[in-house]
């Protein structure tokens, strides 16, 4: 046989390679298709309303969200502030908490302690959000009322704490992965130079893992933004511009979840809720894009 024939032969490995490539391609492209599909669907449902009856000025500046009134108004400012305040409050205490936990698990804990903590944190991440909402209503609520002597315990503080606790496990896990990705040789080299454990963490480990740590925080922000059920249950769900942490608020996501079932398909209320969806989608998109740009910027430098 001419040995050159071997170069043209389609053997089993050749076919397996082709099939594997095709499967991987389909897997990769389908993620993009699904995301685009969701975006197209959400936009399509809300587009008529956005182009037709939406008053953009009212949407962004008014707190009057009265979709069921005879003369409906769609001011979403209170909902945006509600989401932002709850998410902000959640991040305020869960970012330091998570980074601290990640540093302890990744840099200080050893052996069994470390393994046990990792498993516990991952178990925390698996608690369903309705259970967290239940905790907010039945445990945090009376606790806040009693501790701070306020009439209602459902509000920014309650929802923020619950949301922070919910976001903490995923942030801790991602941050710890980022710390683990820093090679031990860096730590050894820095310690050999006489740096203390803390100096090594501050001057070598954290700078080397800042991309991953930033990703962890942004993932937490995304989690907070998108969380619905727990926020619905713990925030009080009252349309209100909060002036203190004890005020009740209503979140964008909770509004969609609570009201969508009662709307008529194609009505302006229905369209308004999808407009909220478009808004959420855009904000998340911008947050992710910014994160990506920031991360790339850091990497380039």
């Amino acid at each position: 046989m001419d040995p050159r024939d071997a170069m043209d032969r389609r053997d089993l490995a050749w076919y397996v390679d082709r099939v594997a490539q095709a499967l991987v391609f389909v897997g990769g492209i389908s993620a993009i298709i699904f995301i685009l599909g969701i975006f197209v669907f959400v936009t399509k449902e809300g587009l008529d309303f956005v182009l037709g009856s939406l008053n953009l000025g009212e949407f962004f500046t008014s707190i009057a969200w009265r979709p069921t009134s005879n003369n409906p108004t769609y001011g979403a400012l209170a909902l945006m502030v509600g989401t932002a305040s709850v998410t902000g409050f959640a991040m305020l205490f869960s970012v330091p908490l998570s980074l601290g936990a990640a540093l302890y698990i990744g840099e200080f804990a050893t052996g069994k302690t470390r393994e046990a903590l990792k498993i516990l944190v991952e178990m925390l991440a698996a608690i369903p959000s309705v259970v967290w909402g239940f905790v907010g209503m039945s445990i945090m609520n009376p606790l806040i009322i009693e501790t701070f002597d306020v009439p209602v315990g459902l509000g920014v503080l309650n929802a923020g704490l619950i949301l922070g606790l919910m976001a903490a496990p995923i942030m801790t896990t991602i941050a710890e992965d980022a710390l683990k990705a820093v090679p031990d040789t860096y730590r050894e080299a820095a310690e050999a130079l006489g740096a203390t454990r803390w100096e090594v963490i501050l001057k070598v480990v954290i700078p080397a893992s800042k991309n991953g740590l930033l990703a962890a925080v942004l993932l937490g922000v995304g989690r907070g933004f998108g969380e619905t059920m727990a926020v619905l249950m713990a925030s009080g769900h009252a349309i209100n511009l909060p002036t203190s942490p004890f005020d009740s608020v209503r979140a964008l996501t909770a509004t969609i979840a609570a009201e969508l079932g009662d709307t008529v398909y194609g009505s302006s209320h229905y369209g308004a809720l999808f407009t909220l969806g478009i808004f959420l989608f855009l904000v998340t998109f911008i947050v992710n894009l910014t994160a990506d740009v920031v991360v790339r910027g850091i990497r380039k430098k």
């Binding site: 040789t185 860096y186 050894e188 080299a189 820095a190 310690e191 050999a192 130079l193 006489g194 740096a195 001057k203 070598v204 700078p207 080397a208």
Partner: peptide, 26 residues
């Protein structure tokens, strides 16, 4: 103790810093 003893490892371990900062670290 370690700050009085310099170590050079088998494979060079450049800390993820600039040339200047590597030497200025200690």
């Amino acid at each position: 103790l370690r700050s009085r003893i310099g170590v050079v490892f088998p494979l060079p371990v450049g800390l993820p810093l600039t040339v200047y900062d590597n030497v200025a670290f200690s």
